[in-house]
């Protein structure tokens, strides 16, 4: 179980690296914004898996805070984009 969790964490890390490179290459600036999504989901996944490999249950708290920050900043970002568009400052 511990070994499997570690292997899956490594696999997710490889996925994250490949996806980050692909997103950073673009071609549009909207593609580059996908990187924010990747850290929110794959990043939390890696953290919880590492906590299951005996690196400390505190990593679950780190993952929880990361997901919470991703949610708050994501909603703030969506709301901001929204209001800027409504006021015509887009």
């Amino acid at each position: 179980m511990t070994t499997l969790a570690f292997l899956v964490a490594l696999f997710l890390l490889a996925n994250l690296v490949v996806a980050l490179i692909a997103a950073a290459r673009g071609p549009t600036s909207a593609d580059r914004m996908l990187m924010a999504l990747l850290f929110g989901t794959t990043g939390t996944g890696i953290l919880v898996l590492l906590s299951a490999t005996g690196m400390g249950t505190a990593l679950v708290d780190v993952a929880l805070v990361l997901a919470l920050l991703a949610a708050i900043s994501g909603i703030a970002f969506a709301k901001r984009a929204w209001q800027a568009e409504e006021n015509g400052h887009d």
Binding site: A30, A67, A71
Partner: peptide
Amino acid sequence: IWPLALAASAAVSFAIARRAQAL
């Protein structure tokens, strides 16, 4: 953790799609 990550993805992906369309 799951609903938090879902909320983040839903908000961010809607915002990105909106921005892409505005661009």
